[in-house]
Simulated scan of single mutants.
Amino acid sequence: MTTTYTIFVLLKALPAWLRLPRDERSRIVDRAFSKALAEHAMAFRYFDAEAFSARASDVALFETTDLRAYYFAMEHLRDSPIFAEPYFEIVDIIPAIEDGYQAFEAAVA
């Protein structure tokens, strides 16, 4: 059985990011994430949270069956201006397995 891992990466936009024009932000994000994700097959979604949370302004969601792929994608992002400038800081990383308890119960039944 293959396990799909979901990793929630909570991010906080820094003032350097907010000072950039929106078209420049889009260019930086597109370049950083397209490189990180192109080389490592995984699902990716991005959520804005700043209107609802003081802790994290954004949430990146990665889904993969290969934790090495996720790790390598994060290394690419760490080398990009997203974190190297830095434009964002990582607030928290929450790895999860959807319905993991069901797999556990089936395994021990």
Rank of each mutant, 00 (worst) to 15 (best):
R68E: 14
F8Y: 09
Y101M: 12
R78E: 10
P15F: 05
L10W: 00
I97E: 01
A56F: 03
L11A: 08
I7H: 04
E89A: 09
F44G: 01
T4H: 00
A32H: 02
E63Q: 11
V108T: 11
A106E: 14
E75V: 15
I93N: 02
M1R: 00
D92M: 06
V9T: 08
F52A: 11
L77Q: 08
D23N: 15
P81H: 08
I94R: 07
Y46K: 09
D99R: 15
R31A: 15
I94S: 10
S80Q: 08
A103Q: 13
A49I: 02
A38P: 00
R31C: 09
T2C: 00
L77G: 01
V9P: 03
E50V: 08
A56D: 02
V9G: 02
R55I: 14
M74D: 08
E39I: 09
A69P: 04
R22G: 12
D30F: 11
A38M: 08
A49L: 11
E85K: 12
A16G: 08
D79F: 08
S34C: 00
E24Q: 14
I97L: 05
D92N: 10
Y71I: 05
D48Q: 13
D30M: 13
P81R: 04
A73D: 05
F104Q: 05
E39T: 15
F83T: 01
D66T: 02
Y5T: 02
L77Y: 08
E39H: 14
S57D: 08
A103D: 12
F83K: 01
L10M: 12
T6M: 09
A38D: 12
I28V: 01
M42Y: 04
F52R: 03
T6Q: 09
A73F: 01
D23T: 15
I93V: 14
L11S: 02
I82Y: 01
F44L: 06
R25L: 07
V59D: 05
L67E: 10
A32N: 06
V91Y: 03
E85G: 07
P21D: 15
E39F: 10
D58Q: 11
F52E: 08
A103E: 11
A106C: 04
T4I: 09
E75M: 15
T6F: 07
E63H: 06
P21Q: 13
L20P: 07
T4V: 07
V59T: 12
P95E: 01
P95Y: 01
A32Q: 05
A38F: 04
T4M: 06
F47G: 04
P15E: 09
E89R: 11
D92F: 06
Y101A: 13
E63S: 10
F83R: 06
R22L: 15
I90S: 05
S80R: 05
L18D: 11
